[in-house]
Design a binder for these strands. Structure first.
Length: 743
RNA sequence: GGGCAUUUAGCUCAGCUGGUUAGAGCGUUGCAUUCACAUUGCAAAGGUCGCAGGUUCGAAUCCUGCAAUGCCCACCA
């Protein structure tokens, strides 16, 4: 058989992937002797259905596939369960942006159902693209178990989870100051806020005898409390509760002095007025002293009647007019033109956050409850715990290991500062909150009738009787993602076969950027709902950057498109380049030259194999056993190095040092086996006394190399394996994907 | 303001719990090559391991301080 001199990945990869699919081995139940194998589970972090995969997805797919293939070869019942995420707010805002670009319409120009259909179509298309891409990356995931965060089984899980937490008092409804995005008209959680630096004028206003500073004059209409530190000597003569008459934007006003330690003496004049309805800190102060709280800005970002002549205007337009008026009234002390401050924006859509007081749903992280069931070491069933304590416990006790370790400190720090989690969103795409309200007419003191809330019902199904209206809000996407490790395995059916067999899972592999959003929430949900840890190890990878460590972005033009490089260099080359110098938690610089270098390596492996196969086939030596006796120095050397490489690579794979394993195998293959032994073998093969033994060593080494490389470069290794099989060079008639890991 | 990390060859980075001459990829220079592979081989140049102290028989590795860079959190009324 004539083998081409160069390896052509484009002729190989699709066919090999189909071979694997046909074998059924991605499904752990279909592995040989499945029932005898120990389970190994990775649940795939579901990519958002917001478009196509980028190079970062290629990284996660590569790492998880390496771990899965390695464990499968180690004889485990390896399950890598794939899925996608509806990503509520991200997906909806993407569709809304497109809609506005194309037709100048917003979602409010459509019926809820009509709009949702559009989002679903977009999500479906994205989904199909993404799954196709994952397959091209060689992902050996079990597609028969694929899940979606918004499909029926997951919806049941979400509703069941919500109800359980509601009944426990962990989920509550309350009016709190929340992050309101006037652009998308929804709340967002603290974690989704992104601060952007911006320079704005900073104004100093005369407020009676005081000078106050602000960048936001438009919030100041209702400011009738003036706050200073109780120890501030400059304002000793003013007493707490003292009333002061003064002239303000829209006329005279009675201000009340409040002494509170929240006022920073070193900041500006040490005096501030407060706007409790639109500032979290001011809200706290107001609550502490029982002050009035008046809304100044509405949900769209427009001023309310309290603003007098400015009512109805958008804050952006009103600001200069308000300044103008204050200037005319002589109330401006001075202006600092380029004051740099951080502006809160919604990272999922870009609106500028306006804090508002809203009736929202929250998860209480500090409330004590009796845990119903616990398999967590150190926590007994019935014990009183809080969600915070549970989240801390499983990591501090080492039940969950985070790699790299220093992220554990960051995790603890986050938990210690954690506040209640706002889980309701005013968008349409997502899990609707499983709560229904019934109202009844009642008369007011003025004799008018109005609808008054009478009953609240929380349940998995809607109530049977008429007259119930479901809460119009949807859930934060991370609520459903938090259930992911067990909702994908059959929960809420606690007897589900998969849940019994594969939970707790082994590894959660994801980016460090979603440690809080997601990893922490999975720990919260899993410990609460099923009294187990969700996973034993959290492996955090870094961000893929370009060769200058710059973030990849379309606007910079430095994006590496995974499918493009796969076409040019092959999946194996991309995978090996991604993993080659990647320590956990570190960002990964990736240049195209590196991928090219790994294509060279694939070709090297091809030619090594070609040499070995040719020399075995031509001599007529086929499927026979040879002794691996080391007859020469070269023999001795290569067998010894092979053994240490296997031992070390195995250890590094077990401890998640994937890049080191990759480097060792690469070094051995090229520098030891190809450069040294293959050269030595040429003379040994010519010597009749050494020939058979040399052939045995060549064959043995090649088989071991293919196995070692298979998790990293699955396509080419499987392809060569099949060629060897055709030439009767292998004992067993199987695929390398289920061959046994070298020992 | 609080925290976490990084600093090693021209560039991008490895170097696990301290132990011979500090490694890889790319790049550079020279030579070779019909014999598995030019997607090659052999060889070479190139590092006071950020700086200053300390611990130790021994430090790129551990400790302290400093500097630079990056990230996260909080937040400026």
């Amino acid at each position: 058989m004539e083998l081409p001199k160069a390896y052509d990945h484009s002729q190989v990869e699709d066919k090999i992937y189909q071979t694997w699919l046909d074998s059924g081995y991605f499904n752990p139940d279909k592995l040989p002797d499945a029932e005898k194998r120990e389970p190994f589970t990775i649940i795939m972090p579901p990519p958002n259905v917001t478009g196509t995969l980028h190079i970062g997805h290629a990284l996660f797919a590569t790492i998880q596939d390496i771990l899965t293939r390695y464990q499968r070869m180690q004889g485990k019942r390896a399950l890598w369960l794939p899925g996608t995420d509806h990503a509520a707010i991200a997906t909806q805002s993407k569709v809304e942006a497109e809609l506005y670009k194309k037709e100048k319409k917003t979602r409010f120009d459509f019926q809820r159902e009509e709009f949702l259909k559009m989002v679903e179509d977009f999500a479906q298309t994205s989904h199909d693209t993404i799954i196709g891409q994952l397959k091209r990356l060689g992902a050996s995931a079990d597609w028969s178990r694929e899940a979606y965060t918004l499909d029926e089984p997951r919806t049941l899980a979400v509703r069941t989870a919500f109800k359980a937490m509601y009944d426990d008092g962990i989920i509550y409804r309350g009016a709190r100051i929340v992050n309101w995005d006037p652009k998308l008209k929804t709340t967002v959680s603290d974690d989704e806020i992104e601060y952007k630096e911006q320079a704005d004028p900073f104004y100093y206003f005369k407020y009676g005898p005081f000078v106050i500073g602000t960048v936001r004059p438009e919030t100041k209409f209702g400011d009738k409390y003036v706050v200073m530190h109780p120890d501030d000597k400059r304002y000793e003569q003013y007493k707490h509760g003292q009333k002061i008459e003064l002239e303000w934007i829209n006329g005279p006003l009675t201000a009340t002095v409040i002494k509170d330690e929240a006022a920073d003496m070193a900041m500006g004049t040490g005096v501030m007025t407060i706007t409790p309805a639109h500032s979290a800190i001011d809200f706290e102060i107001a609550k502490r002293h029982g002050l009035d709280i008046e809304q100044v800005i509405d949900d769209r970002g427009c001023l309310l009647p309290i603003a007098g002549e400015f009512a109805g205007q958008h804050i952006k337009k009103a600001r200069p007019l308000i300044i103008e008026k204050l200037k005319n009234k002589g109330l401006i002390e001075k202006v600092d033109e380029k004051y740099v401050h951080n502006l809160a924006t919604n990272s999922r859509g870009g609106g500028i956050i306006e804090p508002q007081i809203k009736e929202q749903w929250f998860i209480d992280v500090n409330r004590e409850f009796a845990i119903k069931h616990s398999e967590i070491a150190g926590i007994a069933a019935g014990q009183m715990v809080t969600l915070k304590q549970l989240m801390r416990h499983v990591v501090s006790e080492g039940l969950i290991k985070i790699i790299p370790e220093h992220f554990e400190k960051i995790y603890f720090h986050w938990i210690d500062n954690l506040r209640d989690w706002c889980i309701s969103r005013q968008i349409w795409y997502g899990h609707r909150i499983p709560v229904w309200y019934r109202t009844a007419p009642s008369s007011t003191s003025e004799g008018r009738t109005q609808e008054r809330l009478q009953q609240i019902y929380c349940g998995v199904e809607a109530p049977k009787e008429d007259g119930w209206q479901q809460d119009s809000d949807t859930l934060d996407t991370w609520f459903s993602s938090g259930l992911w490790t067990f909702s994908t395995l059959g929960w809420p059916d606690k007897q589900a076969k998969d849940l019994q067999a594969f939970h707790p899972t082994d590894v959660m592999e994801t980016g460090y950027d979603i440690l809080f959003f997601w990893v922490a929430r999975m720990i919260l949900m899993t410990t609460y709902h099923i009294g187990q840890i969700p996973f034993k190890t959290v492996y955090l990878h870094g961000l893929v950057r370009d060769k200058d460590r710059q973030k990849m972005s379309k606007s910079k033009g430095n994006v590496i498109d995974p499918l493009g490089v796969i076409d040019t260099y092959g999946t194996d080359a991309l995978r090996f380049a991604l993993i080659f110098s990647t320590a956990a938690g570190n960002d990964i610089p990736l240049a195209e030259e590196k991928i090219k270098g790994m294509k060279h390596f694939a070709n090297k492996l091809w030619n090594i194999s070609r040499f070995v196969m040719t020399n075995l086939a031509e001599s007529g030596i086929k499927n026979q056993e040879f002794s691996l006796e080391a007859k020469t120095e070269a023999d001795k050397e290569i067998l010894a190095k092979l053994e240490t490489t296997i031992k070390s690579a195995t250890k590094n794979l077990d401890t998640f040092n994937l890049h080191e394993a990759a480097q060792e195998i690469y070094q051995f293959t090229w520098r030891e086996f190809a450069d040294v032994y293959l050269e030595a073998s040429k003379t040994q093969l010519a010597d009749e006394k050494l020939k058979a033994n040399t052939q045995a060593i060549l064959k043995h080494s090649l088989i071991q190399i293919l196995k070692l490389l298979h998790p990293f470069m699955p396509f080419i290794t499987e392809y060569i394996w099949q060629l060897m099989k055709e030439q009767n060079l292998l004992e067993k008639n199987d695929l390398i994907i289920i061959s046994s890991w070298p020992k």
